[in-house]
Simulated scan of single mutants.
Amino acid sequence: MLLVVILAMFLGLTPANLLLNFFYLGVSIFLVMMTYFFDLTAGLVLNLLFILLQGTLMLYLNVVRNQTVPLALAFWLFMPILLSITFYGMTYQLQQLQAENQKMHDEMVQLGAFDEETNLRTLVSYIQDASVFLETSRRYDLPVTTLVLKIRYFEEMRRMLTGEQMREVIKLVSETIKASTRGNDIVYILDRENLSWGVLLFTDLPGAKIVANRIKDQFAKQVENSVALKGTEVLLVVGIAAYDQKKMSSAYELMNAAAKETEYDV
């Protein structure tokens, strides 16, 4: 940022006014903080009061005491208000971006495309994204596979676990899948009622099996280290299906093929 560079250069070029510079730097930081925690109007009022006091001091030194006004005083006359306005503008833009992200998040939740608890996409998004994956596979001859992950003996586990433990399971599975996949592999929660997750990958079956084993291994470690699930055996089953354009015509067929494979993961 240009103002910070100018400030650093000024401090470096005026070592004789070290104490004076650091005093005014402290005042500037205080004014910036007041602008940040309150609002721009309050910050401007405080900065104008500072300029008034600073200007009065400079007139007193020049007119009454007939002294040359130090360069440091002239520099610090306007630097605080410039810093306050600049930092307020930066924080305002950041707040606007955060507000837009929250709005997008809320819209996705309302459309059913985003799960609020896990921050994962849902079945709606899976079908939309999988259609893009399949079209890309057909066009560029890229391998596409999907994983479907479930809790082994889920109905029995649901009766045994408390609500807190079930939330911990959902959290651990979701976090483990995200941590065990690459950035371009997309993770979904496909069914909240019967708890199943999905992953779309641009890889072949051997590559998908490596990912599946990594997820299962990492999840086992997470369960072992979980206080809420201490003494509870929670296991994942994973089904893997590769897209075959001769046999599959839709994203549902790919997903259902992987879901069917979970029955054989022993």
Rank of each mutant, 00 (worst) to 15 (best):
L120G: 00
L94R: 09
E117T: 11
A16R: 11
H105G: 00
N119E: 11
W76T: 05
G43K: 02
L94E: 10
L19G: 07
T68E: 08
F30M: 07
M58P: 01
F87S: 01
V4A: 12
L18E: 10
Q54D: 08
F23E: 04
A72T: 15
F133A: 03
P15S: 06
F133V: 00
F78N: 13
L11K: 03
F22W: 15
T86M: 05
I127D: 10
E116N: 12
D39L: 04
M58N: 10
L20N: 08
V45M: 14
N62H: 14
S28I: 04
T41L: 12
F75V: 12
F75A: 02
L83C: 02
L57A: 15
V132I: 11
Q102G: 01
Q110H: 09
V63Y: 06
F75C: 05
Y60N: 07
N66M: 06
L120C: 01
L52E: 07
S84E: 00
M90G: 04
L134H: 04
G12M: 09
T41N: 08
L120M: 06
F38E: 09
Q54G: 09
Q67Y: 04
F50V: 02
L94D: 06
V5F: 11
Q110T: 06
N119K: 13
I85L: 14
I81Q: 02
S125V: 01
G112T: 08
H105R: 15
A72M: 14
Y60V: 12
L48F: 15
Y92D: 05
L77P: 01
A113W: 02
G26A: 12
V27E: 05
L94Q: 12
L18N: 11
Q93I: 03
L31N: 04
V63E: 10
I127K: 13
K103N: 06
G112D: 11
A8W: 11
E117N: 13
Q93L: 07
N17F: 12
K103W: 05
L123A: 07
V109D: 04
I51T: 07
L120F: 01
V64Q: 09
Y24H: 15
L94Y: 08
Y126W: 14
A74R: 15
N47G: 05
V64A: 11
T68H: 09
V124W: 00
Y60I: 09
D106H: 07
L59F: 10
Q128Y: 03
S125R: 04
L44D: 00
L57H: 14
N119V: 00
T56K: 04
T68G: 05
Q54K: 13
E100S: 02
L20W: 10
L46A: 15
R121I: 00
P80E: 06
L111G: 11
Q95H: 08
M104Q: 14
Q98M: 06
M104T: 10
R121D: 01
I127R: 15
M9W: 07
Y92L: 10
L134F: 00
L25S: 04
L46G: 05
N62E: 13
M58L: 04
Y88L: 02
V64G: 01
S125G: 01
G89M: 09
Q98T: 04
E107Q: 15
I29K: 01
L52A: 15
L49H: 13
